[in-house]
Computed example of a mutant assay.
Amino acid sequence: MKVAVIYHEDFGSKGHSVLRPRIKPSFEALRRSGLLEGEDVQVFSAEAAPLSLVERAHTPEHMEAMKAESYNRMYHDVALLSVGSVLKASEMVAKGEAERSFAYTGTAGHHASPGSCWGFCYYNDVAIAISNLRDMGLERFLIVDVDPHFGDGTRNFFGDDPDVYHVNFNHQESSNFDDKRRNHDIGIGFDADDETFLRVLSAAMDMAKEFDFQICFVIFGHDSHADDYGGFELSSAVYPKMARIIKEACGERGIVFVLSGGSVPDVASKAIPEVIAVLAGR
């Protein structure tokens, strides 16, 4: 199997109020695309992440806050389901059951630190997945966060871990690369267009592919679209090109796309099937 898509209908009905409108329309667009008609792309149902894994990543105080505050409690179950989606997507790639995967989510994760969270995030799905993969014997990972909002939570988990190479796009006007700690922050401003984004992404992936990673996580926020809320001025044409650049840089190494920010159904309904098509080699 080339691509495993992890999905659950609760992401579109019980997910965060900002993020959930795009879920069902984009999944229906994926069905209409014809990508699911063969065996190359298959859909699997997400299951809630074990609390033991989540509790290992986050502080007891954070776990209590997620369960105790009414606003957080509203999304607690779907947050666990979202983490479970990323766990399944990454495990299938690690086991060789799929070459690449795409994890739908109902909440995001990259603003969740060990002891805090904000921005529609509750638990750091990628951090929990990496912890789980390390239990399975994997050691080195590449994270490419193309969401236009700085992934501060993920950086708080891995900023001092040289076995995690973290590429982090953001709204800033300046960039920074810390080779020792393998942190690459890429600021392209609020009005970045397709040409700027793709040029900088290509250069960043040329650098990152030299790192001996085993799996690449792509934190995919389509809030970077000009019609979405993130602030970049990208068009829908950029997303399959983005996926192709990442795929070519990774070569034979596994790729896990994790759905992050974005709210516009029309944007998601075009971007997600086209990204999955690239991952499937179409």
Score class of each variant (00 low, 15 high):
Val93Arg: 14
Ala277Cys: 08
His8Ile: 08
Ala49Arg: 06
Glu55His: 03
Met207Gly: 05
Asp185Thr: 08
Asp206Gln: 12
Asp147Thr: 02
Asp152Thr: 06
Leu81Asp: 11
Ser263Arg: 09
Glu39His: 05
Asp194Trp: 01
Asn168Ser: 15
Gly115Arg: 06
Glu55Arg: 09
Ala112Glu: 04
Met1Thr: 11
Arg32Cys: 03
Arg282Ser: 14
Phe257Trp: 09
Asp228Arg: 08
His16Glu: 08
Gly187Glu: 01
Asn124His: 09
Lys95Phe: 12
Gly84Val: 14
Asp228His: 04
Phe158His: 05
Phe217Lys: 12
Lys270Met: 01
Phe158Asn: 06
Ser17Val: 00
Arg100Pro: 09
Ile23Leu: 10
Gly187Ser: 07
Leu51Tyr: 03
Arg134Gln: 14
Ala192Tyr: 09
Ala127Ile: 03
Ser202Val: 13
Ser90Cys: 10
Lys67Thr: 01
Asp223Glu: 04
Phe44Ile: 04
Glu233Phe: 03
Arg73Glu: 13
Trp118Ser: 06
Ile245Ala: 10
Val54Tyr: 07
Glu195Arg: 00
His110Ile: 00
Ala48Gln: 12
Asp160Val: 13
Ser175Thr: 13
Glu39Gln: 02
Lys24His: 10
Asp135Gln: 08
Arg282His: 14
Asp77Val: 00
Val126Cys: 02
Glu9Ser: 13
Gly96Gln: 06
Asp185Leu: 03
Gly12Ser: 07
Ala127Glu: 14
Val86Ala: 08
Trp118His: 01
Ala192Asp: 12
Arg134Ala: 15
Leu138Val: 03
Ala79Arg: 00
Gly119Asp: 06
Leu201Val: 15
Ser235Met: 13
Gly251Met: 01
Ala68Cys: 06
Pro162Met: 10
Cys216Arg: 05
Glu195Ile: 04
Phe27Leu: 07
His166Asp: 10
Phe44Met: 06
Cys117Trp: 01
Leu51His: 02
Ala268Leu: 11
Leu87Gln: 07
Met205Pro: 09
Ala4Trp: 06
Gly119Ala: 14
Arg134Asn: 13
Arg181Gly: 12
Pro21Cys: 10
Gly115Ala: 05
Arg20Ser: 05
Phe197Val: 11
Ile215Lys: 15
Leu234Gln: 05
Ala280Lys: 13
His62Asn: 11
Ala57Tyr: 02
Ile246Gly: 02
Ser235Arg: 10
Asp179Pro: 15
Arg140Tyr: 11
Val258Arg: 00
Asp191Pro: 07
Gly109Phe: 05
Asn132Ala: 07
Lys24Ile: 07
Glu39Lys: 08
Ser52Gln: 13
Ser82Phe: 13
Ser202Glu: 15
Phe157Cys: 08
Ser101Gly: 08
Val258Glu: 01
Pro240Gln: 00
Glu69Cys: 05
Gly137Arg: 07
Phe44Gly: 06
Val267Met: 04
Asp178Arg: 13
Gly115Glu: 11
Asp206Thr: 10
Ser269Val: 04
Asn156Cys: 02
Gly151Cys: 02
Ile272Ser: 01
Phe27Glu: 08
Glu39Asn: 07
Ala49Gly: 05
Met242Val: 07
Gly34Glu: 09
